[in-house]
Write a protein that binds this DNA or RNA. Structure first.
Lengths: 195, 195
DNA sequence: ATCTTAACGCGAATAGTCTTGCTTTAAGCG
DNA sequence: CGCTTAAAGCAAGACTATTCGCGTTAAGAT
């Protein structure tokens, strides 16, 4: 269980507070599995979670902010970056993992959440998640370098592997599969060799 | 001006019909320049366009469908695929063009529209636009082949150039610039040479 | 054990969204 | 030029979503 994402409460971190949060998050995920984001409403979440509507409005304000919060938590808690001993192994494991996530029922929700500007002020929006993940991936690349391999930059990794996977999820219904993920890894490694 | 997208009316293609459509589309674009999609409402569009709310509800049903329609029309009418005489020239012109579009105020709207499932039944959703554009791009690649160049496949083009540009628009606020676009073209051409 | 108070639950009030029946306008046709 | 009729305008009304005040609960502290 991680710390609050929406807003750091000055006190009362655990207990009922957390129970409500958990119930709401679960309800949102449940409902998103059953129907599209567009069909989701705060009233529904309230009913499903047993938490009163007013509470949800008070804590999250809008549906967009709520979904964004839930998605962020999901992504943050998601599996660690792999460490298989070889760059290729790491990349393949990672790519396959992302391909699965993005092809899953929540794939479109994740992507759409990135596009919904919910953070009111400052808040670097998505960067929160991306930076954390970016750091982990950078470590993966560093490990490869330490082994004497010739890894790509983080940006190259994002552009050559992540971007196409997301792109497919956005525009083609067909799920991106493991084979495709491996093709992308080949492409990235080919680029690195070349340099 | 293209034919209806929402639903082919059995009769009455031009005249007032078209005037209303134009007014509404313009209003939507206007408003999307001034504020986010989330702040947009049908009531607003009605006021700005001078078209009655009920009319908009009857023709488009939901805000999502309306925005989707407008966006699709925008994308469809957008500039033709370049023909500069060289593959590299074509690719660069195309990439720079896309980079500009996607970094513009409507960039996020375009992307988000792709994620909103508005088409009720069958309707291949985005494929409509993507296929048309795909066809044009394929022709561009064919021209290169006819000249004796060694062009990439359409899929490679989409994955190596388009996908990263979209990715940047989604996750980094920083506008993708022309320089970045050219880097991507280099990468794509490097891949083709290698084969 | 008791106190303090942030957060919750509840129901009512408000505001905003969407639908509907009817009237009016004007495009396309004879 | 005058019909016919799809589509637009209008306004009332139904339905949702959102906010608010107030009483209640329970977490954290003494």
């Amino acid at each position: 269980m991680s710390a609050m994402a929406a807003q750091e409460p000055v006190r009362r971190p655990g207990g009922r507070n957390a129970r409500v949060r958990t119930a709401v998050c679960e309800a949102v995920l449940d409902l998103l599995h059953e129907a599209d984001w567009d069909d989701l409403s705060i009233a529904q979440v309230a009913e499903r979670s047993g938490v009163h509507q007013a509470t949800i409005y008070r804590r999250w304000g809008t549906l967009g902010a709520l979904v964004d919060d839930v998605v962020t938590e999901q992504l943050t808690r998601s599996s660690p970056v792999p460490d298989t001993g070889t760059l290729r192994g790491d990349l393949e494991a990672y790519a396959v993992q992302v391909a699965e996530d993005v092809a899953g029922p929540l794939g479109p929700v994740f992507l759409r959440a990135a596009l919904v500007g919910t953070r009111p002020e400052g808040e670097p929006s998505k960067q929160v998640y991306l930076l954390e993940r970016g750091t982990q991936l950078q470590k993966m690349l560093d490990r490869a370098r330490d082994r004497g391999e010739n890894p790509p930059t983080l940006l190259e990794l994002l552009e050559v592997i992540l971007a196409p996977l997301y792109f497919h999820a956005m525009f083609f219904e067909r799920p991106t599969n493991a084979h495709h993920a491996r093709t992308l890894v080949d492409r990235l490694l080919a680029l690195s060799e070349k340099k």
